[in-house]
Every structure is written in structure tokens, then in C-alpha cells.
Amino acid sequence: MPYEFLVSALVTLVAVVDPIGLVPTFLGITHGMPAAARLSVAVRASLIAASILAGSALIGDWLLRTLSITLPAFRIAGGLLLFSIASEMVFGVRIGRQTQEAADALEERVRNIAAFPLAVPLMAGPGAITASVLLSGRTAHDPIRIALLLGVIVVVCSACFLCFVAATPIAKLLGTTGNNVLQRLIGVVLAALAVQYVIDGVRAALAT
């Protein structure tokens, strides 16, 4: 039944993407940004993630098979890249670099952060992409179910956006010291998550 598929898809993607759980990470990687820039990052990241997940649902399985790319390889690559960002956050490199950036470079930085690591691999990571591909396989090419799946993707990414918008007042309450501490804590968590991505990818690769 389409209703059962809708509920299953919604629960699956909400659990995998975890919009509320992304709020501390959003605060950490947008530390030092003005409110307008944070909003721009939230909008861009949500749109990018929605596009990637929708694309994965429509052509993801075919594309990965065509390019001979496995999900374990994607997970390992994402983990290595995410670890580089996490190390910068822990050692405060991002703070020092942010203060040296001119105002005309802010827009470029907003685009970069929105795409990586926020949209990929945190929002549209290997787990979310895998879930989208598997859910697409359950549609049996039924146009109604495909439309429902795309609608669920839009809803989940919209929920992420709303959570990111709510994060800005939280950042104001934390203040400068609180944000500095949070950024380093989140950096440690992201580093552990990055290592876990690599471990899971290696295990999956060795199991095949």
C-alpha cells in the first residue's frame, strides 16, 4: 500500500539523516559566521542534500554500477575528507583562518561549507544514499510511490533546514566562549564519526 510505503520511507530517512542530531554539528562548522551567512548555509545545504538524495532515488543504483563505485569506497572517501575538517575544528585552525578571510570571500566559504561537510557526507551520506536507493527499489517503478519517496526526501531536508534555523538563536545564547568550546567538542565527535566511516567501509569492502 502507498500509505505503508510512505510511513516506512519517512521513518527510515528521518532516522538515518537525523535532522535534530545535526544541529550541534551545524553550530560547530558555522562558528563565527553572521546570521545571514548561517541562513545561506542552511538553505544551500538543504537544497544540495535534497538534490543528491532525489538523484540517488532516481538513478543512484544505475550510476554507481555504471561508474563501478561501491558504497564502501564512498564511505571510506567521505570518512577521510570529514576527518580533515574535524582536525581543523579541534585544533582551532578554522577559527584562525576565518578571522583572516576578507568579507568578499564569505560567499565562497558559505558555498564550500554547505556542500561539504554539511550536505555531504553529514546529511546525504552513505547511509542516506543507501536508504534512498533501497527505498527506490521498493517502488517497483510505480509513479505514485516514486512521487511519495521524492516528497519524503523534501520533507526530511526541510526539517533539517528548520533545525538549522533554530540553531542560530542557540549560538547567540552560547556566546563566544561557548561556541569555541562547542566547536572543539563537535570536532572530536566528527573525527570519531569519520574514523567509523572508514572502519565500516573497510569492513564492508573486505566482506565482499
Rank of each mutant, 00 (worst) to 15 (best):
I129G: 03
L71K: 01
V155F: 14
S136I: 10
L58H: 06
V43C: 10
L81K: 00
V133G: 02
T176D: 02
A57G: 11
V16I: 15
A147T: 12
A159F: 14
R75K: 09
L67G: 05
A159V: 11
R97H: 06
A73K: 03
I52H: 05
A15Y: 15
L58Q: 12
T70H: 12
L150E: 01
I95H: 12
V156Q: 15
L64P: 05
R94Q: 14
V133W: 09
R75L: 04
S51D: 09
A207V: 02
I85D: 00
L149F: 04
H31M: 14
P24H: 15
A102I: 11
L122I: 07
P34R: 03
S136W: 14
A35L: 09
G60D: 07
I29N: 02
V195F: 04
L6S: 09
V155H: 09
I52C: 10
P72S: 02
N179W: 09
T139K: 06
A124E: 02
L182E: 04
L149D: 00
A114R: 01
M89T: 00
G187I: 09
I52G: 07
G127I: 06
P34T: 03
L71P: 10
C163D: 07
P143V: 03
G175K: 02
V165Y: 12
L193Q: 05
G127W: 08
V195R: 01
L22W: 05
A191G: 02
V202H: 03
L71N: 01
A37M: 07
A102T: 15
G96Q: 10
V155P: 11
S132H: 03
L206N: 12
Q196H: 04
A77T: 00
R111S: 08
S46R: 13
Q98I: 12
L148A: 09
S56V: 12
P143H: 09
I76W: 00
V110I: 10
T99C: 04
R184Q: 07
